[in-house]
Design a binder for these strands. Structure first.
Lengths: 183, 183
DNA sequence: TATTAAGGTAAACAAATGTTTACTCAAGGA
DNA sequence: TCCTTGAGTAAACATTTGTTTACCTTAATA
């Protein structure tokens, strides 16, 4: 493994553990270098290549570019280890920062494949449109339903024939912009 | 807003933007303080109270404790703004770091409420058990199915009656430990 | 009213830390 | 073989940065 790779690996581990970046000396010491010069050169090159971000002159001013979790495309069969190949992109949770989660109770949205225990990602202050899945307050009860219009009036539609349409006063709290399920 | 709250807010913004923490002087300057002493005292108290984590003596050695996205309980109706109350816990994506995502094609797992376009979270190197939803390689095709046993032989079961059981040679790549859906 | 404590100022101090200069060494190519 | 180049060493340097000391201001308090 090249020196750059070793630096990157150390950075990842250190930041994961400490929450801030190591100093150049700490990197050097950890990799067994007796001078900081070589590390500095490598760091600058790594920053140039876009491996890391680095602000010159500031202490511990290195940080990694968080790309998120890779979305893989094909999986290549190869002995002895399977290879994940063709990264189609990355999924970052940053876009959901500042949102809220609500745990789904019941199966009234099962038709939309949202089941009991699922966590829906809610964004407040977002314009609601017909067809959106929303979180609404109906008679002091929180509920997740699909927003629809009937006779010019807004209604809440469950996605389960066992439940009936809610056609009374309600207040939309937020729009469901995502969903998370744990197994 | 108290000084501590202002510090915390600045920290959040600064770290979000720069990827590393501000120095004590930067905090002081930004809040309009002409000395660093007061900031240092506040930071130490905030660390004591568990608001932040801070390693003494190291430059920019502050970091926030990432709790994740809050899972809310009740929603309180109140005018004029809705209040999210009763935080039941937090969901952190950290546990899914190091995993991979695979985009679902088709509706073969619709019975498990996994639909086309959903992203399943895959963990490699995990012991598979009967009933697990797994990613498997069947004749060079990647597929997500439920792992089952039939006549002492491992098989792959779709969760859709339109699809048939896969009862041939396959190789499990990873276990589905979660799911993400975007709307 | 005198006292006290919290919170801030100013200035200095001592480390921690990024950066630079000069030199060394080994490998590879002309 | 000689020269060049990449990578590392050693030692300074120059800031940046956390910390400390002494003092000040103000509002609550005995």
């Amino acid at each position: 493994m090249g020196t750059r790779e070793r630096i990157l690996e150390f950075l990842e581990g250190f930041i994961e553990e400490n929450g801030f970046a190591p100093s150049v000396r700490e990197i050097a010491r950890h990799l067994g270098f007796r001078s900081t010069k070589a590390i500095k050169v490598h760091l600058d090159e790594m920053a140039n290549m876009g491996w890391i971000e680095k602000k010159g002159g500031v202490a511990r001013g290195i940080h990694l570019i968080e790309k998120g979790i890779p979305i893989i495309g094909r999986v290549q069969a190869g002995q002895p280890t399977l290879q994940f190949e063709g990264v189609e992109g990355h999924f970052s949770f940053d876009k959901w920062k500042g949102s809220f989660l609500l745990r789904i109770k019941g199966d009234s949205m099962i038709g939309a494949h949202i089941e009991e225990g699922d966590l829906v990602v809610i964004e407040k202050d977002r314009e609601t449109r017909k067809g959106d899945i929303v979180v609404a307050l109906v008679e002091d009860e929180t509920t997740v339903k699909r927003l629809d219009k009937k006779n010019g009036r807004w209604i809440l539609k469950p996605e389960n024939p066992d439940y009936s349409i809610i056609d009374k006063e309600f207040q939309v709290i937020g729009v469901v912009i995502g969903m998370i399920r744990k197994y």
